[in-house]
Amino acid sequence: MIRIGREGGRKSVFAGYHPLLNFMFFGYAVSVPIFFLHPLLLIISLASALAYSIYLGGRKAALFGLGFVLPVMLLAAAFNPLFFHRGETIIYYFYYNPITLESIIYGLCNATMIGSVILWFTCYNAIMTSDKFIYLFGRLVPAMSLIIAMALRLIPRYQAQVQRIVAARRGIGFDVSTGGYLTRVRNGGEVLSVMVTWALENGIETGDSMLARGYGLPGRTAYSNYRFDSRDRLLLASFLGLMTTDLFCLVTGTLSVQYYSRFMWENIQPFASIALVCHAAVSFLPLALELREDALWRSLRSRI
């Protein structure tokens, strides 16, 4: 059975913060490298995303990084110089198409961006459980959020029910794994058919249960267990401070880079280094929170 809401192997501190902060962080972490394709920024992003995903997912995450993210990055890095021929430093002709140094550099940067986005999303999947999403969007799209919650309740139930149907039909001599190809397909179809009827018909009582508890009355609210406490306020303040500084420095353009027609970047100005420092600070902040908590628990345990 597939589990819903991939909560990572480790209990995360950052996941314990308010969903708004979780969402804010990932929104920032994913979009900044997409918007500002600067090599240094990208390296910071990739490093922090990799570190955090490995922290959250352990060996599995490392394997995912090697087995999936790395090939995708290589592909992306190769894609660019093969299809784009701008840039003035030609190093090779591939089937009469010039391969330029600039497009290779650009491809590498783009690959780094893709890698960090994918890795950030693995962290997002571990931290932003369905609950949090439903909480954040429950007010905005209440009906759809409720559908999501209902579907998430039904899916494991359906997965179990399919097993039951298969067993039940086997019990009266309709095994799904025997017979010719067509028989098996037909039997599989019958299982689906039973499943669909069962799901739809039993839903009627669910609808009644919603009606009985007043669904449809005007002015429905969305409740959640999440509270915005002082710890959240502190993190929000640090996020806001660092992110606005970072964005301000980035937008004012001190950290600019030119890829074509010749790759050039300006010397890093003091203002630009502030941007980089801030970006690194934000990107590594969740990981730092986790590590601090680990240290705290180690010290608590050693005192016992």
């Binding site: 309740r153 919603m210 669904y215 609210t221």
Partner: peptide, 29 residues
């Protein structure tokens, strides 16, 4: 309260299910 314990539960979490009716009534958190 209806007959089937399975069918009458609407949401995926215990706490959410408990709050469902009060949400409909528009109560504050």
């Amino acid at each position: 309260v209806l007959q089937s314990p399975e069918n009458q539960i609407v949401t995926d979490k215990v706490w959410h299910e408990l709050a469902f009716g009060l949400e409909s009534l528009g109560e504050k958190a």
